[in-house]
Every structure is written in C-alpha cells, then in structure tokens.
Design a protein around this nucleic acid. Structure first.
Length: 165
DNA sequence: ATAAAGGCCACCC
DNA sequence: GGGTGGCCTTTAT
C-alpha cells in the first residue's frame, strides 16, 4: 500500500469481545481497523503494514466505548474504509449480507459484476480491515466448506454460531 | 515491467 | 479426499 489518506487523531486500543480480544483503530472519521489477532504485537504489526508511518495513540477508553457500541447495542459506529476501488466495492457488498446468513465467494463476484474474478474476491475479502463490522465471516465456499479466515477459522466459526441465535 | 502469491472454482482422479 | 489449470487483483521484485 503506497499512498494513504490522512487520518485525524489516529488512535487505537485493545478490548475483549465475545470472540476474544480485539484491536480497534479509529480516527475522527470513524473506525479504520478491527482485528482479532493472536497477540498484541501482531496487531501492531498489522497496523503498521496497513497504515505505514501513522502514529496511532493508545486510547483504551474510547476503544472500550466503541466495542460496547458494536457488540452490546444496536447502534453501529461510523466506519472509515480505506482500500482500492475493487476492495471497496467488495467490502460494501459484504455489508448487505444479512446477519445470520451466509453467501459464497462466487456469489459476491456475481453481485459486483465480475463473475470471473472469484479468486481476486477471496483475496480482497481476506484484506478486509474491519472484521465483524464488514462481515467477511459470512462468506464461505461454493462447495459448502468454510473457506479461510484471516484471524483463524475458529474465530469465523464462533462468529457464525453467535449470529445464529 | 514482470513475477509470485493469494480466505476460489470447476474438473479430474 | 487430493491435485491441476485458469482466473483476477495486489504486492514485491
């Protein structure tokens, strides 16, 4: 990722969720990253890779507030998606998958009008910066198997189970 | 400019 | 179940 947008007061924090501890990054324009890393160090590495050179200030209080809004209230905080045109198209399409339902990588490719770009769709979904809010966990393979998940298949399963009820 | 790497799919065995 | 070739975008040479 080469050029990359200005973020007003970039901040981040860690907070526990129903799916383990998450790392959430945000600015005055909204949430720009939400991840469920193995450990805190890998979370920071991921932020550095995605937003090279940005000096995120730690703010666990705001992180706690945001995570509460996400998982314990119906209110969805603002998000700030940053990516290529292709990625943005796909990430927006993911937001139309209803909670508790699943779709496939091939169907997403259909929806965005690029039926042959299935492989690239998988790659783009894997690059989703805002886990859960952009429900990449609701996308599985055409043959019914789970497919992959950036933060571990176990996490994907947990999210799907949690949404079922 | 080119290569290599992906959260895939259809098709074969 | 496992392996191959084709597909398309992104990232690294």
């Amino acid at each position: 990722m080469k050029e990359f947008p200005y973020l007003s007061e970039p901040s981040f924090g860690f907070q526990s969720t129903p799916f383990g501890e998450c790392c959430i990054a945000f600015s005055n324009d909204g949430i720009c990253a939400l991840s469920f890393p193995e450990n805190r160090e890998s979370a920071l590495n991921d932020m550095e890779r995605r937003f090279p050179g940005v000096d995120f200030k730690q703010n666990d209080d705001k992180a706690t507030l945001l995570v509460h809004q996400i998982f314990e209230s119906s209110k969805k905080p603002a998000i700030n998606l940053i990516g290529t045109e292709f990625q943005l198209t796909i990430w927006k399409a993911l937001q139309n998958i209803p909670k508790g339902k699943t779709t496939t990588y091939a169907k997403i490719a259909e929806i965005i009008g690029r039926p042959k770009a299935v492989r690239a769709v998988g790659t783009a979904i894997g690059a989703n910066p805002i886990a859960y809010l952009i429900p990449c966990h609701r996308v599985i393979r055409t043959d019914g198997s789970l497919g992959g998940f950036r933060w571990g298949l176990e996490c994907k399963v947990k999210m799907l189970e949690w949404e079922k009820k």
